[in-house]
């Protein structure tokens, strides 16, 4: 899911950087003082998840976990994802510093979207908690795949084929992330229900 350096045009990289900086500013402002530790824990999960690999056909994909970050953190997921991606870029050479903004947009915007889409389902029953987690995990990867397709479209000019190839590659990841996010959310809400953000 990380776009490497040297692929996208300067305009796309700049647009990504501007959106990422603006989103990070909003996210930092919205982080509640008492929830900062939650943000750090989930950012750590995101940082490490990229090292867990799934080999699909000719491609090599990894877990992302932007769904659980988005669902539980909302806008605060943006600075969390920015920090984790920056560290992944420095320590593991995933993506690259110039593509950081675009990568943040690709992974953080869907995270915020799933927060607003599926948060209302949380905290009602165990089944609904799992469903909300599954949908957040599934759709965050689907939306990220689409955004990745849009970013690459500026290079390939072949949006439909590029996006289709990306979505096909990531379908198993959508399902796996959905299941993992579902179980994580159900577990967290059982042992620590305070982690649910305030309702919209």
């Amino acid at each position: 899911m990380h776009i490497s350096e040297g692929i996208l045009s300067g305009q796309v990289l700049s647009a990504g950087a501007v959106i990422a900086v603006a989103g990070t500013g909003i996210g930092l402002k919205k982080i509640d003082y008492d929830k900062i530790v939650h943000v750090a824990i989930l950012a750590s999960a995101f940082f490490v998840a990229s090292l867990i690999h799934i080999n699909i056909g000719p491609a090599s994909v990894h877990l992302i976990l932007n769904g659980i970050l988005g669902l539980l953190l909302g806008f605060a997921a943006i600075p969390a994802i920015l920090t984790a991606l920056l560290l992944q870029s420095i320590f593991f050479q995933f993506g690259g510093l110039t593509a950081l903004g675009v990568n943040v947009v690709i992974m953080a915007v869907p995270a915020v979207l799933v927060h607003y889409l599926f948060l209302p389902l949380l905290g009602k029953s165990s089944k609904l908690n799992f469903t909300a987690g599954f949908l957040a995990g599934f759709f965050s990867i689907l939306f990220s795949s689409l955004l990745l397709g849009v970013a690459l479209w500026f290079t390939d000019k072949n949006f439909f084929e590029t996006s289709l190839a990306i979505i096909m590659t990531y379908i198993p990841v959508m399902i796996i992330e959905g299941v993992i996010t579902g179980f994580c959310v159900t577990f967290l809400l059982k042992v620590y229900p305070e982690i649910i953000p305030k309702k919209l």
Binding site: I31, Y33, I36, A40, A43, L51, L87, F91
Partner: peptide, 29 residues
């Protein structure tokens, strides 16, 4: 391959940044 040292350092930096943010927010409060 990414070493355990790098993974632990990365997580450490995330928590360090969180503590800095906590400190800033506390002062603002």
């Amino acid at each position: 391959n990414p070493s355990l040292y790098k993974i632990v350092t990365g997580v450490g930096i995330i928590f360090l940044l969180a503590m800095v943010l906590k400190f800033i927010k506390k002062r603002r409060k």
